[in-house]
Structures are given as structure tokens and as C-alpha cells.
Amino acid sequence: MIEEKVLRTFTEKLGQVTIRGIEELGYSLALLVESAYWLVFGFHRRQAVKLPSIFEQMMHIGIQALPIVTILAFAIGMMLAIQGIATLKTFGAESQVVLGIALSVTREFSPLIIGILVAGRSGSALAARIGTMQIAQEIDALRVIGISPVRYLVTPAMVAMLIMLPSLTFFADLVALLGGGVYSSLELGMSLQAYADRTIEVLKVDDITQGLYKSLVFAVIITLVSFVNGFSVTAGSEGVGKATTRSVVMSITYIIIADMVFTFVLTH
């Protein structure tokens, strides 16, 4: 009797979670299509996407993140150099550390760290902002004024993310390589010039673009997850808190899973 009840509750719960998941996926895709629609056809509907709001988002998402990105990327570069030199010492192949740093930074670490950082910094801010607007009826106000919330809020954020994430990733590439270079030159007595030459020698354009492509996918994930969670807030300020947490956790999870899938596809 009790087992039956537990089983039933479990099945019901599983069903609810599945339905919510499918609903959210559908809603995300609809948002993606709609924001692209406004970008392309907004002008014809006399509701063009405004450049200033894109720039404003680019400031929040990209420019203001530069200090923290610099610190993180430099530390990651150093960390890879420390780890790489320590490991390669066992084989007496310390000089190969340059190859290791160059490839892991551009292909993996930069896009992933930037993705996680932006999800935590800007994804949460977006979800909280949209959630607060939702409970203050500001979203309704936009709609009754005749402004599509997607055109006004989602599209600018989406475009800003798509521009700033690859830019930040490329910037992080450079800073992380510098970080690795500084440690390597101190530890191995190799000049920074030699390190830079060797890096340029081993790096292929593909390695860098692979990281940039990933960051484009992460940009879409962060934007959609933040907005889906923000728009779905109903239960007051507690709901805003929950939506913010949920959007950060979900964004990071999806980013890491997408990264794994992406890496598998690109290396095969």
C-alpha cells in the first residue's frame, strides 16, 4: 500500500518534471526564434531593435567584466603552467608545457571560464531584473504600451551576449597565455619572446575558433535560461530569488554539458 503510494508520487513527480522540462525547452526555442525575428523584421513592424540598449547590455555583460576576467584568466594561465611543468618534469619534457597551455587555454579553459563567469555575473542579473519587472507588472506595462518584451529586453541581451562572449573569450585567451608565459619564463628561464614565438608556432587558427564557437553556444544558453526563468517568476520576491539561483545553476550545467558534447564532436 505504502510502496504503491511512494511509487505513484514518484511517477507523478517524474511526469511533472518532464512536462516542465519540455515546456521550458519549447519556450526557449520560441524565445530564440522570436528574438531573431525582431532583429531581422523589427524595422518593418516599426519596432526596430534599438542600438543604445544593445550597447548598454554590452557594457554590463562585457566591459564591466574585464577586471575580473583579467584576474581569472591570468590565474588560470599560471595554474596551467604550474601544473604542466610539475607533471611534465617526470618525463623531462618541461619545454612541451607551451603546447599544453596554448591548446587547453584556447580550446577549453577560456570559453568555459568565461561562460561560467558570465552566467554567474550577467545571467543572474538578467534573471533577477526580468523577475522583478514581472512581479512589478512592468512586463505587462510594456505589452500594453505596445512594446514587445522580447524585442525590448531579450533581443538586445541576446545580441550583446553573442558579441561579448566571444570577445571576452578571445581576451581571456591572450591574458591566460600571458599568465602561463610569465610563470614558464620564471620557472624554465625561457624568455617571454621565445614563449610567444613557440605559442604562435603551435597554435592553429582552428584552436582559437573552436573556443569562439563554443562561446557563441554558451551565449545563447545563458540568455535563454535567464529569460525563461525571469519571465516565469510569479511568487513575489522569493520567486525572484529562486529564479536567479535556478538560472545560474541551470546555465552552468547546460554550459558544461554542451562543452562536453561540442568537444566530442570537434575532436572526432
Binding site: R45, R46, Q47, T132, M133, A136, Q137, E138, D140, A141, V144, I145, G146
Partner: peptide, 22 residues
Amino acid sequence: AKEMDKLRKNMGVSFQGGALFN
């Protein structure tokens, strides 16, 4: 949707909490 956009220009709404953009 296009007609609705047009119609909305003839409508004004004052929400309960004001709903001013903060």
C-alpha cells in the same frame, strides 16, 4: 498582432503598483 499594436496606441493603462520602469 500588427493590428493589435495599432490599437494599443489608443489605449492607456494605469497599473495597481504604477509599473513605472525603475
